[in-house]
Write a protein that binds this DNA or RNA. Sequence first.
DNA 1: TCCAATTGCTTAGCACTACTAACTATATTA
DNA 2: TAATATAGTTAGTAGTGCTAAGCAATTGGA
Lengths: 152, 152
Amino acid sequence: MTSSATTPIAERPEPERIYLFVQHLGRRLRDIDARAGLTPARFSTLASLRFHGSRNIGDLAADERVKAPSMTRLVRDMARDGLLTRAADPADGRGVVIALTPNAATLFDAVRAEKIALVADYLGHLDLATQAAIKVAFAALDDLAEPPEPGS
Amino acid sequence: MTSSATTPIAERPEPERIYLFVQHLGRRLRDIDARAGLTPARFSTLASLRFHGSRNIGDLAADERVKAPSMTRLVRDMARDGLLTRAADPADGRGVVIALTPNAATLFDAVRAEKIALVADYLGHLDLATQAAIKVAFAALDDLAEPPEPGS
DNA sequence: TCCAATTGCTTAGCACTACTAACTATATTA
DNA sequence: TAATATAGTTAGTAGTGCTAAGCAATTGGA
């Protein structure tokens, strides 16, 4: 058994604190999705469409790091639930163009705002020196979270 | 469409940068689980056992924020795959005591070390002032990631 | 002491999301 | 135009979450 069994987070080495922070805050953010009735896959797909515009199945699947069949089904179910529309691609008879519905765009914006607010409210309670440190820290850490952001 | 459609992460407001950081690094950490043949649920369950010792189904389920039936099945399948053992609870005829196998403990430690190394390698390349800022930042941010850590 | 309620767990069945393999249909190109 | 590549779908499997329903062991009040 490692020393972590009882060591408070605050006393653990920095890399572990960061990795635990990511796990824990990630869970809280997913809870926000869930309360809005969105699964992580659906929220992420909405984000991709919201920020990158209408796309076809293949592009969405690549964005979401998922295979085409998974995206076909996800899109089919989200279309059934009124979150997006499917249309034939006028430029390629094999293709499909996926687009957000207005309702989905509104829902996505609200959920995204709630996530940002969770973090913003917390930051607002910190003293200015700490806020400055956070700004410096994340300017450096963005690179660590590299994946060419599929969206959201 | 918001301005985020094309805004680089570095220019977005701090709360959003943090939330995106969590999403992106979270994905990279889950990829490490996957390469080791561990699903997120399995890794997290191994972590709970590794740090908190042997437990019964109910405790594990509570730790993992999952219902008992889900944990029953997860434990059954992990036992089938040699990651843990089930034994009757001598103190309560209804109960079951779950324990890690040595192989699972070794596997878990390796995966956890790889995750920490991902972050540590990166931090090592930063200048000291930035490292100091990160230390201050995460001392404050730990509270934001509140959930009483089920493990890992 | 004994019966009712509670607790721990399991089984059964549904939903969702991921995968691979195999297929159709369209487009491209040699 | 025949061969190949691409876009998407369908079918089947696996993993993980849920609720509902039920069994067996434990606990606790009359």
